[in-house]
């Protein structure tokens, strides 16, 4: 497994191996990282939207829903401590990882997250 630690204020997107992952921040300050691929047809989930009424992420392609409890339970193993996020990605521990900041349309509080276009590369 690849262990990555980063500042979630700077980065919210990781590409490692053949997969990519996006970070969601909930209004209570907790965070989950989820694979950026819908289980239905593989669409990028970070381009979905948040349905506040159903408390679920909705895929933009075919409206597949991911309730918050599913995101929390099925997300990438994640630790948030003292302003830093550590995630364990199921790729080789020596794999190269690229960190970026993207506009996560599925963000629960709908706050704009894009903008800086920050990018970085991280190893284990």
């Amino acid at each position: 497994m690849l262990v990555l630690t980063f500042d979630p204020e700077k980065f919210n997107f990781v590409a490692a191996g053949d997969d990519s992952y996006f970070l969601l921040r909930f209004p209570d300050g907790s965070r989950v990282m989820f694979q950026d691929r819908c289980a239905h047809r593989g669409s990028p989930l970070h381009l979905g939207c948040w349905n506040a009424g159903e408390n679920a992420l909705v895929c933009s392609s075919h409206q597949t829903k991911y309730p918050e409890r599913v995101l929390r339970r099925q997300g990438v193993p994640l630790i948030y401590r003292a302003g830093r996020v550590t995630v364990l990605l199921d790729v080789a521990s020596h794999a190269e990882a690229r960190l970026a900041r993207k506009n996560i349309l599925a963000q629960p509080d709908n706050s704009p997250t894009d903008t800086s276009g920050a990018q970085g590369t991280a190893g284990a």
Binding site: S30, M33, R72, R73, Q74, P77, L78, I79, R81, A82
Partner: peptide
């Protein structure tokens, strides 16, 4: 407050 654990 400082620590949160999530995911599978």
């Amino acid at each position: 407050e400082e620590i949160d654990i999530s995911g599978k």
